[in-house]
Amino acid sequence: MKPIGQARPGFPCWVSLAAPSLQAAQEFYTAVLGWTWRPTGLDEEFRTALFGGAPVAGVGALANSLRGAVAWTPFFAVADADATAARIHERGGTAGVGPLPFGTGRRAGLAADPDGAVFGFWAGEALPGWPSGPDVGAPAWLELRTRDAFAAALFYGEVFGWASPGSNCSVEYENDEVIVREAGRKLAAIHGGAVEQAPDPRVRPRWYVHFRVPDVTAAVAAARAAGGTVALPPDASPTGRQAVLCDPDGGLFTVTAA
């Protein structure tokens, strides 16, 4: 893991979940991913998830006035929150929330890409424990399932400076996906169907978080026992065995073999 202060602009720096019941979410993700919890210091309705003592995610309770679809949201580090919001607008996205002050010397915002996939951006000091690397129980990488992988790659590449001069980031097409890597380490995958296919209008674009687990079958069983469901059963992929799970409130996420 990289120490605090070293999140690179344009790269993932945090993931968060807004759930109807904070207590129920804590119980479910403890059962499936083995997380422990601590207060954030911001609000009683927010908690930081820990694995092995290191922060791996944030979970908060949805306000009654903001009930909506439950989903995991990835955040990307940026050097300038206002400039990022402007680039999002210029390239057809929507900066819906913020940038707003978030703690000491930090600013954060929520946005949607041109196809509606929601993501966040974060300016300021990195959170300790991120990027989280190959640790079990931590986010392994992000996946965007969208209608047009190449259009999405262009949008995010321009907003976050992927593959720009001086960046350690590479963007490549392989196995019907656009893969984003930093110094060889996979950070994100953008999937939009095979290259010869037209964009599928039935796809609901969204980001998925892949969490590492020691045993995908055991994680699936734990999710079912804790009230979750299996959206896609365990299967082998080019990156290893994985399954897509749904928590009791509808939050989708992927577990992948360590």
Rank of each mutant, 00 (worst) to 15 (best):
A151G: 03
A151E: 11
A152W: 00
A152T: 00
A152Y: 02
A153E: 12
F155G: 08
F155V: 07
Y156F: 14
Y156W: 08
Y156E: 07
Y156K: 03
E158W: 06
V159A: 06
V159R: 05
V159M: 07
F160P: 02
F160N: 03
G161F: 08
G161C: 05
W162F: 03
W162Q: 00
W162I: 04
A163I: 00
A163K: 09
S164D: 08
P165F: 02
G166H: 04
G166Y: 06
S167F: 04
S167E: 06
S167N: 08
N168F: 05
C169N: 06
C169Y: 06
S170L: 04
S170R: 13
S170E: 12
V171T: 00
V171K: 05
V171Q: 12
V171G: 03
E172D: 15
E172Y: 02
E172T: 15
E174L: 12
N175I: 08
N175W: 12
D176L: 09
V178P: 01
V178E: 11
I179E: 09
V180E: 04
R181Q: 07
E182S: 12
E182M: 09
A183F: 07
A183G: 00
A183I: 00
G184T: 00
G184K: 10
G184S: 04
R185P: 06
R185K: 13
R185V: 15
K186W: 09
K186F: 08
L187I: 02
L187N: 10
L187M: 13
A188Y: 01
A188V: 09
A189V: 14
I190H: 06
I190D: 06
H191Q: 11
H191C: 13
G192R: 04
G193Y: 05
G193F: 02
A194T: 13
A194I: 05
A194L: 10
V195C: 09
V195R: 15
E196F: 11
Q197T: 10
A198C: 06
A198Y: 06
A198G: 12
P199G: 10
P199A: 10
D200M: 04
D200Q: 09
D200Y: 00
D200G: 11
D200S: 09
R202S: 14
V203A: 10
V203R: 15
V203D: 11
R206A: 15
R206K: 14
R206G: 13
W207C: 09
W207Q: 08
W207N: 00
W207R: 03
V209W: 05
H210I: 02
F211P: 00
R212Y: 05
V213E: 08
P214A: 14
P214V: 01
D215G: 10
D215R: 10
D215P: 03
